[in-house]
Design a protein around this nucleic acid. Structure first.
Length: 291
DNA sequence: CACTTGACCTGTCCGC
DNA sequence: TGCGGACAGGTCAAGT
């Protein structure tokens, strides 16, 4: 699921609900979802207060007053759903969405706050994880040292974008967009959408992309990321925000999961191919192979 | 070093 | 209706 717009949407929701709440207990059943929970939760999470909720790339950071942070990756099917104490757990979530009764069979971790409200970490495929780490040490993690710049940050422009991508000259443009060490936060949906916008075939090698095309691709990427945040993200399958609600970007998508339908630009049929080992949606008329 | 494949999991969909 | 296989928004490790 979650690419930058989805994780950012979850972050905004959590930032509204969590700060100031004190953790009373943490329940977990699937050990891999929260490997260091048994050792550290009682010492560094229970009794501490949520200070701030941040995001870097596709990772969420819930900063606690104990100087520890919950570090969370949702991977493919992770959800973080908050429910206040007034809502009836197990009696139907108030929002009409993919999320019904909570906890459900995909709930891996439940945080209960002092006021009775709860945060559920659901993850059908169990790829996602949650860790509890000293806040000061997070910047030293391999992932944070290697991850590329945030595409939506103020000081990021198309020249920087081009410079980063050119580190992978002999790789396909799609694989390079998906590489988190090149640019943070881009996944399969927005890579396909941006490439369609720039009329670039996903298999084009980075070295064959002209400066003008890089500029166009940058503009298209920023456009789809911002639009998706505005629409609350893409709920193709599992994704819901912190209130359990779906996002609507998928109905604005031009090619993603639209194989067999008409290209909104030229009317020809959208095809699904495989590039960089991923399902890839293209209009072969608009997006010509370059080499 | 660069690139591809397999692994991690569950659930759904499609063809026989 | 059942069953097997492919596939799903992400990332690692291992292999070529």
């Amino acid at each position: 699921m979650p690419e930058l717009p989805e994780v950012e949407t979850v972050r905004m929701g959590l930032a509204k609900f969590l700060p100031g709440r004190v953790i009373a207990s943490v329940d977990f059943d699937w050990p891999k979802s929260f490997p260091n929970a048994p050792n550290d939760v009682k010492k560094f999470a229970v009794g501490s207060k949520v200070v701030e909720v941040r995001r870097r790339a596709k990772v969420l950071l819930i900063e606690l007053s104990s100087k520890y942070s919950l570090v969370i990756h949702l991977k493919m099917t992770g959800q973080l759903v908050f429910a206040s104490s007034k809502e009836r757990f197990g009696a139907g979530h108030p929002n009409d969405s993919l999320v019904g009764q909570l906890p459900d069979k995909s709930t891996r971790v439940t945080l209960t706050f002092k006021d009775g409200s709860k945060l559920f970490f659901n993850d059908q495929r169990k790829f996602g994880w949650m860790r509890l780490l000293p806040t000061a040490e997070i910047v030293n993690l391999d992932f944070f040292k290697k991850v590329g710049p945030e595409p939506l940050s103020d000081d990021f422009d198309w020249r920087q974008f081009r410079g980063r991508l050119l580190r992978r000259k002999n790789t396909s443009i799609k694989a390079t967009l998906l590489d988190q060490t090149v640019i943070a936060g881009v996944g399969n949906i927005y890579a396909d959408e941006a490439l369609w916008g720039a009329r670039l075939h996903p298999a084009t090698l980075v070295r064959d992309v002209s400066p003008a095309k890089f500029h166009k691709l940058y503009d298209e990427l920023i456009y789809v990321l911002r639009l998706s945040i505005e629409k609350g993200g893409s709920s193709d399958r599992n994704y819901v925000n912190a209130e359990g609600k779906k996002g609507s970007y998928i109905s604005f998508a031009r090619v993603f999961r639209r194989e067999g339908q008409a290209c909104p630009r030229c009317g020809r049929t959208i095809e699904k191919i495989r590039v960089a080992g991923r399902g890839t949606h293209i209009c072969t008329h608009c997006q010509k192979t370059v080499n």
